[in-house]
């Protein structure tokens, strides 16, 4: 097994605020990693550093063998040139809390747009692949609809298909079910569970402890910008070491 993502000594400052503190984090191919932790602990920030939505202050990140940002000792983080960076970014797929589908495009166009424009996939191939993926997430019947005509859970499933359409080496999920009504989170979670079973490499920031426990190979706990604890879901949920994690877990159970 080899690390497909490797983040070393990651620090992120927003002005004076130290949002990520010396984080070491890596993900192996085919692994599903859940990131849990209280609000404001830096989970989204960490995830967004992986596809450069947020740029780190120092540290290094390698994705699929390409080190796209590194920090010379004592210096500032240095990214590779934009063009090469775009290439790396397009190897990640991201699913957002608020879906962020393109409202002026049909479901199908949402999924085919980037493969056609960025990867220059011929249109018929892109459509065939998109239909395959929409079928996978159970949205093929809705391919000609516009996003505002479908429910939140359906939007999120389309967003997952859109991310997968770029054949990413890693899928990033930032609280994919937090904006959904409780009774429809299940349809999204089951799609994600299905992906995990197919060994799609994924990182999931989530407040769904049940999902983390059941689906994730590994769970990491973040607290105040630090990666406090990491282990198998078994270790994290049944045998938490740090006081902070114990407190967090009991607060989640009560909630």
């Amino acid at each position: 097994m080899s690390a497909i993502l490797e983040m070393k000594n990651i620090n992120k400052y927003f002005g004076d605020f130290h949002a990520l503190k010396d984080i070491d984090f890596s993900v192996e191919e085919g692994e599903t990693v859940a990131i849990i932790g209280p609000s404001g602990s830096g989970k989204s920030t960490l995830l967004r550093c992986i596809n450069c939505l947020t740029r780190i202050s120092s540290g290094s990140i390698s994705l699929n063998g390409t080190t796209f940002v590194d920090t010379p000792s004592g210096g500032e983080a240095k990214y590779i040139p934009d063009k090469a960076l775009k290439q790396v970014i397009s190897e990640t797929g991201m699913v957002f809390q608020h879906f962020n589908l393109f409202p002026h495009m049909t479901v199908l166009d949402n999924v085919t747009y980037a493969p056609i424009k960025v990867k220059k996939v011929p249109k018929d191939k892109a459509v065939a692949r998109a239909e395959e993926l929409l079928n996978l997430v159970g949205m093929l019947d809705h391919k000609d609809q516009y996003p505002q005509m479908i429910s939140g859970g359906q939007k999120q499933r389309v967003a997952i298909a859109r991310g997968l359409a770029m054949d990413p080496t890693i899928m990033l999920f930032d609280e994919p079910t937090s904006a959904l009504d409780p009774e429809i989170t299940g349809e999204v979670l089951s799609v994600m569970k299905n992906l995990a079973e197919q060994r799609v490499t994924m990182i999931v920031v989530t407040h769904e402890m049940g999902f983390a426990r059941e689906v994730a190979d590994r769970v990491v706990f973040m607290n105040q910008g630090e990666l406090t604890e990491s282990g198998t879901s078994e270790q994290i949920f049944t045998n938490p070491q740090s006081k902070r994690l114990q407190d967090f877990l009991s607060s989640m159970i009560r909630a």
């Binding site: 290439q87 797929g93 962020n100 393109f102 980037a114 859109r162 990033l172």
Partner: peptide, 23 residues
């Protein structure tokens, strides 16, 4: 236009021009 649209475009690897004129 919502910031999320730019973020979605970015994470799909769209260029600035593609984001501007396509999204």
């Amino acid at each position: 236009i919502d910031q999320g649209q730019y973020e979605a475009a970015h994470s799909l690897g769209l260029s600035r021009a593609q984001t501007t004129f396509g999204i």
